[in-house]
Amino acid sequence: MGSATTATAVSERSTRTRKVTSARRRSPSGTVLAYTALTFALVATLIPFAWMFLGSVKTEAELRQRPPTWWPQTFTWDNFAAWFGRLDIGTFFMNSVVVAVFTVLGTLVFCSMVGYALAKLDFPGKRLVFTLVLVTLMVPGVVTFVPLFVVVSKLGMVSTYPALILPFLAGPLGVFLMRQFIQDIPDSLIEAARIDGAGELRIFLRVVMPLCGPALATLAILTFLGSWNNFLWPLVVAQSEDMYTLPVALSLYSVGQNSTNYGVLLAGSVLIITPVLLLFVALQRYFIQGIAATGIK
């Protein structure tokens, strides 16, 4: 599976290179123009990041200075110190990590299991389940928001980890992704294992799962990203400070008199964005393969 992907990538690359060399031969000025335009666009895209990182180490006085300074005149860690001192960043960070990790694990297990059943097993009601999954892909979040909150309060789960995790294990996207991927696994492999006397669970764990690496990686990344950046639902169900995730903490800090306290706010943004940004740069190949494969962010 892995070698096939690499082979495709290589052949794609060589096709592209061939095409591009011919393009360059035709019009060198076009190439220069393309690089200039792309560089300009790249700088414009990245300015907000630069401005955030630079601003987070400027003093509050310097942030209010007009016209604004580019490079910090006085370099300070005070804005970060606020998060590690009077604001309990450790708890918020742990909450974000715990919620994201369990959401990812649960999604991987639930979605791959039902994905296998939908792709390779026959059972009454299969079509209904799959149709429901497809329909709910289009359901806007606000439709289920109110009753979901009622369900969670009825179950006594407000301000608990399960309230932050469980509703996201029912994601239709993951099911769709796993079902499509498992469907492409040859039936003959599964039949061979069955003839060798392997039980269904064994087939699932030893034959199907090892072949699902790329799909699981994509699903893990998408789910982690969604959970880490998720904000509205945690804002509503995490009602005590010890349950706040990072985005909830930042958004609740940024109201009222603190709303223009940009030094501390920018430091908070840096603390939220940096982990995913590092993860993204390290795993960018998988991110991009996943997006291209599923077409969904």
Binding site: P48, L225, W228, N229, F231, L246, S254, L265, S269, I273
Partner: peptide
């Protein structure tokens, strides 16, 4: 990949 809350501040 950015969080909307963090990006909003910036």
């Amino acid at each position: 990949v950015t969080s909307i809350v963090a990006v909003a501040v910036v």
